[in-house]
Design a protein around this nucleic acid. Structure first.
Lengths: 182, 182
DNA sequence: ATATTATCGAACACACCGTTCATTATCTAA
DNA sequence: TTAGATAATGAACGGTGTGTTCGATAATAT
């Protein structure tokens, strides 16, 4: 990939995450992004079809890494610090607490449908892998897909609750709540 | 209230729910609403500050009724059919299945943050009332507000799962899944 | 019957979107 | 190192939707 492309791409990503830390996704305009990134309007659209695609790519970068790291698939570069040998979900909570990237604010924000969809998609993948561990505790009458959905949703709600509270609790406590709830 | 006001208000509500059954909330424009409602632009804004406020009022009408009916508080008019003596959550599922009003499509749609917030707010109210029934089954270490949040979220996710599946299952089965999951 | 109040309709300024294009800068491969 | 390819620039454009304004008109209440 051309160095010029990499540079503008990074500039846009940086400007975007910076803006995300200040205001709602829905309130952010392409105008603002390109101004902060110091990039031409046409250039932005040469890289991303719309604002939504920008978010999608950002999320994919983050979630894919987090979940794959949690699964012990170390094929991705480690931009984030993490300790791979903790139990999976604890690892996730730690990871989220360590390198927030301002993305978690999306969880408690207003117009974050897209963000949550991407997050949930990755969590479903994870829940699928970890399913036996939960099936053991739960009633066998529950349909498999229902259970997967439930685990993913409960995880997200737990994170949301945690974030709204300012992430004061240590990951060890939160993961305990998660396991007690789910 | 002036009969004219009631008429336009109803016209707008009708046009809006009609549109909701066809397309995403985010894709609906004020333009479309007033055209379908056959109402002047200025008139719309005389009634509702924005599109979001319109949704809010619609949701409040529906959810307040449903939850209050479920709680046995019969102070509201009964626009919807319902059988008040079933257990609360079963009652809710039945209610949702009976008079969909196209609102449930919002649960599985794309840009429904607002709708979900209103729904969840009402469900928290309900969960608060029903809390003892759940606390008995759950570990006492779980913080009260965490548990309330968890119940509300699990209910919504259950409904969402049900709706996405075409609401094929009878309310009795769904409520069983809900109780097994939560 | 009259004063009030809602609606109309047309226009307005505004904000943002996504695209186009000619020009300039930067890269890559020979 | 140079020639050809590729990317970024900047300015402008048409389009769509928003929310507001205002005088004129029609329905309502008392």
């Amino acid at each position: 990939m051309d160095r010029r492309q990499r540079k503008t791409r990074r500039a846009i990503f940086d400007a975007f995450t910076d803006l995300l830390s200040r205001k709602e996704f829905g309130q952010i305009t392409v105008e603002e992004i390109i101004q902060r990134a110091d990039v031409g309007r046409a250039t932005f659209y040469a890289h991303f079809e719309t604002k939504d695609f920008l978010l999608r790519e950002l999320c994919q970068e983050l979630f894919c890494h987090i979940v794959d790291a949690a699964c012990g698939q170390e094929e991705h570069r480690h931009i984030f610090e993490c300790d791979t040998h903790e139990p999976v979900f604890l690892h996730l909570f730690s990871h989220l607490q360590k390198n927030d990237n301002n993305l978690l604010k999306l969880l408690s924000g207003e117009n974050n449908e897209l963000f949550l969809r991407y997050f949930k998609t990755e969590l479903r993948r994870l829940a699928e892998r970890q399913l036996p561990q939960f099936q053991a505790q739960k009633d066998p009458r529950l349909p498999r897909d229902f259970l997967v959905e439930h685990i993913a949703a409960t995880f997200i709600e737990t994170v949301r609750w945690w974030v709204n509270d300012g992430m004061r609790l240590p990951p060890e406590t939160v993961v305990e709540y998660f396991y007690l709830a789910v």
